[in-house]
């Protein structure tokens, strides 16, 4: 059976970029995806690049340093490591690698010289961040016991990327490089980044909610990604709330029609003899619910027109805690994520 929600092409991607409009649950779903992809004895890396310490908050750990460390154990064995990439630290790492600055690097940082260099060319920050991500994707380790070949350290890398407003600019490394020197170590590595980001080893997923603005932003971003030649992945529809009303009652309910005396007798049959204002309150909640369901179905058909694979995640009424992230990861697995 082919599962269109997570086609084979996505299962082969090594770098999963997760973006979305602010407030849609991008970080939470990036974390759930990293867990889902690690299930069954695999190892994934969850990376953030905006210094928000969102990963630490989701996994309830102390703030992450600029070092990969284990943050969660995945179902059926497997582990997720976390990394908070910081442009200044990445630049220092480069300088030390290529220019042997030694301890002076720290002094430079204290002086503000490193921050200055990364703000001088806004593209440089993005190049440094995506460069580090690429290095993690490509890193190999040890020796395969059977073949003696080196194997990738991470089965998949999940990037909690900047929100949709900035994502194309962030990933369009070629453009950013235009403002930088045409030679040198960072330039060389960036060519590799461009190659990775434009290849089928990368999938860019967009988190959305069934509301007008997030869906519009998602559709706009899909167009921008396609135009920039960047590979789109799945749309992750987050916080889906169940539609409680029978389909036949929906249209009427949105206007409040058909919710009068019939409802009262229905409630009485359930042993609920309510005051008028209690029934009125239930009616107004139902009208709101019906209006929302109608809007959701309208924006959903706009989303369907984009023709991307879709994954669906419900709203967790308890709110999202660590247990909630595992629950979402399990739901992703059930929809074919592997």
């Amino acid at each position: 059976m082919t599962d269109q929600r997570w086609p084979a092409a996505l299962a082969e991607a090594r770098l999963h970029v997760v973006s979305g409009k602010g407030g849609t649950g991008k970080t939470t779903l990036a974390a759930a995806l990293a867990l889902a992809l690690a299930a069954g004895g695999r190892r994934t890396l969850l990376v953030e690049v905006e210094g928000r310490q969102g990963i630490a908050q989701v996994f309830d750990t102390p703030p992450l340093p600029y070092a990969e460390q284990r943050i969660a154990v995945a179902p059926d064995g497997g582990e997720v490591r976390g990394l908070s990439v910081d442009a200044e630290a990445a630049l220092l790492e480069y300088l030390e690698m290529f220019y042997n600055l030694g301890l002076a690097g720290r002094t430079l940082r204290r002086m503000g010289a490193i921050e200055f260099a990364t703000t001088l060319a806004p593209g440089l920050r993005d190049v440094l961040l995506s460069g580090k991500v690429k290095e993690c994707v490509g890193r190999t380790v040890g020796e395969d016991r059977r073949g003696g070949r080196r194997v990738p350290l991470y089965d998949a890398v999940v990037l909690d990327a900047p929100p949709t407003g900035r994502i194309v600019k962030f990933l369009d490394v070629t453009k950013a490089m235009g403002s930088l020197a045409r030679t040198g170590p960072i330039h060389t590595q960036s060519e590799g980044v461009v190659e990775l980001l434009h290849s089928s080893r990368t999938a860019i997923h967009l988190v959305t909610q069934l509301e007008d603005l997030p869906v519009q932003e998602t559709l706009d971003t899909v167009d921008e990604l396609v135009e920039a030649g960047l590979p789109t992945g799945a749309v992750l529809i987050n916080r889906i709330r169940p539609s409680r009303l029978p389909a036949t009652a929906l249209t009427g309910a949105a206007t409040g029609a058909g919710l009068g005396s019939g409802l009262r007798s229905g409630l009485e049959a359930a042993g609920l003899f309510l005051k008028d204002e209690e029934v009125d309150g239930l009616v107004s909640e139902t009208v709101e619910h019906a209006e929302r369901v109608q809007i959701e179905s309208a924006v959903r058909s706009r989303l369907n027109a984009a023709g991307l694979p879709q994954l669906e995640l419900p709203e967790l009424t308890e709110g999202v805690d660590l247990g909630g992230v595992y629950e979402l990861a399990e739901l992703l697995r059930e929809q074919g994520v592997r």
Binding site: R241, R244, G262, G266, A269, T286
Partner: peptide, 18 residues
Amino acid sequence: GDELAAAVLRLHADRVET
């Protein structure tokens, strides 16, 4: 029993939780 009334009660319970 009444399907609509049951749905109205379900969504009220959801809403209380939220």
